[in-house]
Design a protein around this nucleic acid. Structure first.
Lengths: 173, 173
DNA sequence: GATATTTGATATGGTCCATAACAATTATCA
DNA sequence: TGATAATTGTTATGGACCATATCAAATATC
C-alpha cells in the first residue's frame, strides 16, 4: 500500500520541532489529512510490516541476515534433511527464486546442500556448525532487541493477541 | 519474510483432503514444522499482509484498483488541491515513482494534474467526476467485501484493536 | 541579478516475484 | 522391460516495486 523505505529520510517527519506554528508569515505546507486511510487494514498492515522489517534489519546488521534468510535458517534447523522444494514451498518461495538464496547462504557456510542418496535429484538441506552458531546468536538478537520492543510498546498480552490475530488472517482470510 | 503470491496454486495446501493419512505404503512427504517461525512478528505480519492485499485485489477486480492506487484516490479526495510532492511523500512514495502512477490514473480519467497558478512548477491534484464516482464504488466494495471479512473473522472489537496496534507499530516502532 | 532550491520528470539499477524451459533423475504403467 | 510422464534443481527472462542521480523549468534567497 505504497509505503517506501526511505520515506522519512529527507524532510517531512512528524518531528516538526519548531515548525508546526506559523511563527512568521511563512505559510507552512500543512500536513495532509489521512482520513479513512488510517482505518484501512491494508494500509496500516503494510506500514507496520515495513517498520518491523526495517527494525529487524537494524537488529541483524552485525549478522547480515534478512528476514527471509532468518526464516530459512529457522526452518532448516527445525526440519533438517528436507530438500529445497519442501523448504521453499512451506515458506512460500518459488523454487527458482530459492536457488540464489541458497547459493548465498551456502557461500557463507551457513547451510549446505547434500545430494540425497534416496533420490539423487534432490538436495537435502542442513545447517552447518557455523550456521547453527549464527542462528543461535540471531535468535538472541531478535528476542532481546526486536521482539522485546513489541512488549515495551504493546505489553505482553497485547503482543500475543496481535500475533494470534495476524496468524488467523494469514491462515483464514 | 518470504511469502510469495502463488504459494497455494500448485500442490501443498492445508487442504489435504484424503491425503494426510498414509493409507497405503506411499510414504507421504509430511508437512514441515514451522516451529518458532509462527511466533515471529515479521513472518506473520508479512503473511497476513500478502493475504490482505490478495483479497483486496480480488474485491477490486471490477474496478481495477490496486491498494496503492486506492490510497492515492482516498488521499486526493480528502486533500484536493495538493501537489504531487505532498501527496507522494505522505504516502511514502518517492516522487520519481509517483509519476508513472499518476500517468496511469490520469490516463483512466480518475484524477487530473492542474498547473498551479501560484507556483507554475507544481501540479495540483484533483479527482475527476469519474474518479469520485469510482472511488465511491470502491469504498463500498472495500467495506462490504473486504473490511467486513475482518469482522466476521475477528469480531468488531478485535478488529479495532488490531488496527490500533498496527497503527501504533507503524508510528512508534 | 547571481546563486541556490524546489518541482515534476527521465534514466537507470537493484531487489523481489513469477513463468517457461531444460537436463538429470525417478515414477508410472502398457 | 522399455516408452512416457513427473519431479528436482537450475537457468533465463520479464514484470513490479523501490531507490538514486540528474535535468530543465520555475521559484526562492540574498
Amino acid at each position: 500500500m505504497t509505503v517506501s523505505k526511505t520515506a522519512e529520510k529527507s524532510s517531512e517527519k512528524p518531528a516538526d520541532a519548531a515548525k508546526g506554528r506559523k511563527d512568521a508569515a511563512e505559510a507552512q505546507p500543512e500536513a495532509l489529512q489521512l482520513g479513512e486511510l488510517s482505518e484501512q487494514l491494508g494500509y496500516v498492515l503494510k506500514r507496520a510490516q515495513l517498520k518491523v522489517f526495517e527494525n529487524f534489519l537494524r537488529c541483524m546488521a552485525s549478522l547480515q541476515l534478512t528476514p527471509a534468510q532468518f526464516s530459512v535458517l529457522l526452518l532448516v534447523e527445525k526440519n533438517p534433511g528436507r530438500n529445497q522444494t519442501e523448504v521453499a514451498s512451506t515458506l512460500g518461495i518459488l523454487r527458482p527464486n530459492f536457488v540464489a538464496m541458497l547459493d548465498n547462504l551456502e557461500s557463507r557456510d551457513l547451510c549446505a546442500r547434500i545430494r540425497s542418496t534416496n533420490d539423487r535429484r534432490s538436495h537435502i538441506l542442513v545447517l552447518t556448525d557455523k550456521g547453527k552458531a549464527v542462528l543461535a546468536r540471531a535468535k538472541k538478537l531478535v528476542a532481546s532487541k526486536h521482539e522485546a520492543r513489541l512488549n515495551d510498546l504493546l505489553g505482553q498480552a497485547n503482543r500475543e493477541a496481535l500475533i494470534g490475530m495476524l496468524s488467523k488472517i494469514a491462515n483464514e482470510f
